[in-house]
């Protein structure tokens, strides 16, 4: 049996719009429900990437920061759930949002500050690490589980 191993693609973007375009192309490749965790410091471009992914998934609405209301749902080719764990410290708070019901129901769940939930992080199909390397440059590492490797092909 072939060994199941995560695949990682590393991309450097030089501007906000490049980061957004990367998100669009990632969003276009997604054809099923999955969970994506985004990890990176304040200002590293998580929301920008999410905006792109949502566009790629066919969301027509403006995608705003959900920091305040924590949880937002959009309609794309598939339902899209946008979560922001910035304010949350406890798994219990995340559970209260009802996110667990949306994993595996065909929705794409996008989690900013995904590393703040051990559970959500653990079940993520794709983990994206964003690193600030210059004023506008970002190093973006996209790691996917083996059954989602196709999403990254040729990215």
């Amino acid at each position: 049996m072939p060994e199941s191993r995560p695949e990682t693609t590393i991309i450097t973007t030089n501007s906000e719009s490049e980061t957004e375009r990367l998100g669009v192309s990632l969003g276009c490749r997604i054809d099923k429900g999955l969970c994506i965790s985004l990890v990176g410091a304040l200002g590293s471009g998580k929301s920008v990437l999410v905006r792109g992914i949502c566009k790629g998934l066919g969301v027509e609405e403006d995608v705003l920061s959900p920091t305040f209301i924590l949880y937002e749902e959009y309609v794309g080719r598939v339902p899209v759930i946008h979560l922001d764990l910035y304010r949350l410290d406890h798994e219990r708070d995340i559970e209260e949002l009802g996110v667990w019901d949306r994993l595996g129901d065909g929705s794409v769940v996008l989690v900013e500050w995904g590393d703040r939930s051990v559970h959500l992080f653990g079940v993520s199909d794709i983990v994206i690490n964003l690193e600030i390397i210059g004023d506008t440059e970002r190093r973006i590492a996209v790691r996917s589980s083996s059954d989602c490797a196709g999403v990254l092909e040729g990215l």
Partner: peptide, 11 residues
């Protein structure tokens, strides 16, 4: 203490 509104606590 939390630097923001925590929904569980708020409700």
């Amino acid at each position: 203490k939390y630097g923001g509104v925590v929904p569980e606590i708020a409700s």
